[in-house]
Amino acid sequence: MNRHVPRLVVLAGAAVACACASAPRPRWVPANGDYAPDSGRFAVRFPDGWMLLATPKIVMASRDGTLLQQIDVRTHEAGKPLGSSTKKVVSRGMLPQEVAEVVQDAIVSSPGMQGAAMTENGPAEIAGQPGFRLAFAYKDAEGLRIRAVVYGLLAGDVLYQLSYRAPERYYFARDVDTFERVRASFRVTTALAGAAGSQ
């Protein structure tokens, strides 16, 4: 029996190596026109010249580095808390204003965000459906003043969030129109069918 052990160890090691190889670490890649995640839940177009990083939970884009500007798209399942700092959840049938309230509360409950000042919370159309637009400002850990915009849409059991954040000085104004074009390109592809899984 014991003579089989080394072979088993080798096989187990190979299996681990295969598992690692099948889940490559996300890398920044050039944005190349339309983007759709593997889940097929949405499609969006990021600007040429920007870089993309896609993980199972979020796809983010930046031109000069995420400290200077970041656009991201993420999805949340209804019924699951929006982060570790809040127990609130969105649920099917909520009005856009109610969803916005949950998202806003998740933002201001996050560590380091308790001082965030909400400047806007209003209705907005996303992918042809009623959603919301939040705008807020805060200081990061280094004291740099950051401005941010979040669009949200609850479609079926999936909350879609499109966010943009950049330092208030110079960068925010420079790229906010680019973000609006990204938002205008956003399309929901499967959420109304109640797709499950991440992104």
Binding site: T86, K87, K88, V89, D105, S109
Partner: peptide, 9 residues
């Protein structure tokens, strides 16, 4: 209010 925002009902 803070508890409510954090969903600590």
């Amino acid at each position: 209010l803070l508890d409510l925002r954090a969903g600590r009902f």
